[in-house]
Design a protein around this nucleic acid. Structure first.
Length: 485
RNA sequence: GGGGCCGUGGUCGAGCAUGGUCUAAGAUGCCUGGCUUGGGCCCAGGAGGUCGUGGGUUCAAAUCCCACCGGCCCCA
């Protein structure tokens, strides 16, 4: 009773083609919408995003974040207040105004509005109204919404889009220390969701030249991708008082006197997380969804031998009833398709577990379970069905995560020279290089390796006892360098 | 910001160099009927394309030229 052998050469050798194919056949997204950078999320893709969204929001709200919804537009004036912020984003904002049919010359006259590329400049004027006293702090809010960035480069379904579905959290605190504490909590929440999805990533502190526009510093989560590019799925920024000063978010301190609030903002990209799920867990056949986000968790495929249809279908129905309350389960009774076709059909749609029921199973009072991730098949007596399904789904969750972590560590290579680094980047690796801590060395790395300096580890302290790969002086830590989306 | 490549039914893709034989091959997917059913079987029938859009050259354009839209790659 052999299952199939999971293969993933397509995914690693021709990632783009594989990915685009999977999006469509697994009904995740359709990128044929005729406006550059905008895609349609199909039922399976959106289902996964919704599951992830609910889980993330649940954790944020447990931590005291208030759910709110802010407008999609800002005035150019507000948007321009924080100097660094506007410098970072100005090249990619959508301007909006009234559509004037026929009268082109008027278009410029009205003060333009902008579509949020992120919501700091939309939320913070309101924060200034709400916060007057230390008792108003901390203020923690979140919203799931879409932000808009006018990407001029090539766009890419889910990875680099112009309409970005995400969750953004924004907090205001009385002290810098309190803000730091909250930053750790935010990192922890993001970590938890990503870990539950089995996504493998690096938690990096970005180099100063690559921090969020207007932030003191930025922490980012970079997930690995089969083609070697890293996929930034989430970020957490410490804004210090940069924004509260320009938006006038002042409060009366407990000890007397006035102060500006200390702020954080953080974002979690739903479409990129979806991309990471597909890219990291998928194989040549298509996606493999972690059970808790899978649109269908268990599919039942009857095998109706001629003359025994009634008993097989009846039995399949029983199996369906047994599982229905506990799982998202589908009984595939289509009669114009062979079981083999159905196997492929559901595998390509990422269903993590299949139950086969045929005459043999009817006789034995058993079913055959087949794992989507390994192809492994085994027979289970029907009395143990529910507990076995639970066990196997859990095991799939665990082993997807393990495999993804394994791939991440395979993709990271220690390089001792710039030439070796450049070569490794070509091969689609993430390079780990000893670094002295000076910005000019980091910048020089970017040029000589032909890839982005993603930063140094935030989750653990990595001390380097080797010389800096660029200048040769005493190394302090390790920088991670990789191509990025 | 600079340079290059590409766009043909839902998807993939032949045809484009050297315009006419294109009433556009093939595969897959989809629909109908039959046969099968423990990995995509087989047989028969069917729907689906103003060749990205607009303009130009020409007796004649999927094929040549221009612009736009969309997709991809490389370099800064």
């Amino acid at each position: 009773m052999g299952g199939f052998i999971a293969r993933e050469s397509e995914k690693f050798e021709r990632f783009s083609e594989w990915f685009d194919n999977v999006l469509l056949t697994a009904r995740i997204a359709d990128n044929r919408y005729p406006v550059k950078g905008f895609i349609v999320y199909l039922e399976n893709g959106w289902f996964v995003i919704e599951r992830v969204r609910r889980r993330l929001e649940e954790l944020l709200e447990e931590d005291g974040h208030l759910p709110m919804y802010y407008p999609i537009v800002a005035t150019l004036e507000n948007f321009s207040r924080e100097a660094e912020h506007i410098k970072g984003f100005m090249g990619e904002v959508f301007a909006v105004g009234k559509l004037r049919l026929g009268g082109e010359d008027e278009a410029q006259q009205e003060a333009p509005l902008i579509l949020r590329p992120t919501s700091e400049t939309i939320m913070y004027p309101m924060f200034a109204l709400w916060i007057t006293n230390h008792s108003d702090l901390p203020l923690k809010v979140h919203q799931s919404c879409a932000v808009y960035r006018y990407e001029t480069k090539a766009t890419r379904a889910l990875y680099r889009v112009r309409e970005i579905p995400w969750n953004e959290g924004h907090t205001a605190h009385a002290t810098g220390e309190e803000a730091e504490e909250q930053l750790k909590k935010a990192v922890e929440i993001y970590r938890k969701v990503l870990d539950e999805l089995g996504i493998a990533y690096l938690t990096l502190r970005r180099p100063d030249f690559d921090k969020f526009a207007g932030a003191e510093y930025s922490i980012a989560f970079d997930a690995w991708n089969p083609d070697g590019k890293v996929n930034q799925v989430a970020t957490v920024h410490n804004l210090g008082t940069n924004f509260s000063r320009v938006f006038g978010i002042e409060f009366e301190k407990r000890e007397g006197g006035k102060g500006y609030v200390w702020q954080l903002c953080y974002g979690f990209g739903y479409s990129r997380v979806l991309a990471a799920i597909i890219a990291q867990h998928g194989d040549d056949l298509g996606p493999i969804f972690p059970p808790w986000v899978a649109p269908i968790q268990v599919v039942i495929v009857p095998i109706p031998y001629k003359g025994r249809e009634a008993e097989v279908y009846g039995y399949a129905e029983r199996v369906y009833e047994l599982l229905r309350g506990g799982y998202r389960v589908k009984l595939d009774e289509r009669e114009d398709m062979t079981p083999g076709e159905k196997y492929y059909y559901w595998e390509r749609r990422g269903v993590p577990l299949r139950v086969e029921v045929g005459p043999r199973d009817v006789e034995k009072n058993a079913v055959v379970l087949v794992r989507r991730d390994t192809g492994e098949k085994f027979s289970v007596p029907i009395e143990r069905l529910r507990e076995e399904v639970a066990r196997v789904l859990e095991d799939i969750t665990r082993s997807l995560a393990e495999r993804a972590r394994g791939k991440l560590s395979e993709q990271i290579v220690d390089v001792k020279s710039l030439e070796e680094g450049a070569r490794s980047i070509e091969e689609g690796k993430i390079c780990r290089v000893s670094w002295c801590g000076r910005e000019e060395c980091a910048l020089s790395l970017r040029n000589s390796l032909g890839a982005e300096v993603r930063g140094y580890r935030y989750d653990i302290e990595e001390r380097s006892d080797k010389p800096c790969t660029v200048c040769g002086s005493q190394g302090r830590t390790y920088l991670y360098v990789a191509r990025a989306f």
